[in-house]
């Protein structure tokens, strides 16, 4: 299945901003994070199609996955 992955803040360094990637069915959010070599302990927020999701959420074909470190401001 095709997943659009969007990375933010320092997760972009040495990787990419946005790419369409191919994953097997039932891949989880954590699976994508591990595949990209991102330290899962540094992940603050994940969203599928603009909704927050848990790390064990299973992705579906066409999903847009956003991966953020812990960030704040205001």
């Amino acid at each position: 299945m095709k997943i659009t992955v969007r990375l933010f803040a320092f997760f972009r360094e040495g990787r990419f901003i946005e790419e369409q990637l191919e994953y097997p069915d039932r891949t989880t959010v954590a699976g994508v994070i591990n595949d990209l070599g991102i330290d899962i302990n540094a992940v603050g927020v994940t969203m599928i199609s603009s909704r927050h999701c848990p790390l064990d959420a299973e992705l579906r074909d066409g999903d847009q996955l956003g991966i953020f470190p812990m960030i704040g401001g205001g």
Partner: peptide
Amino acid sequence: QYGTNVLVNIINEA
């Protein structure tokens, strides 16, 4: 590193 402006992308994504 990014200042408070780090929020533009996450608030947009949400």
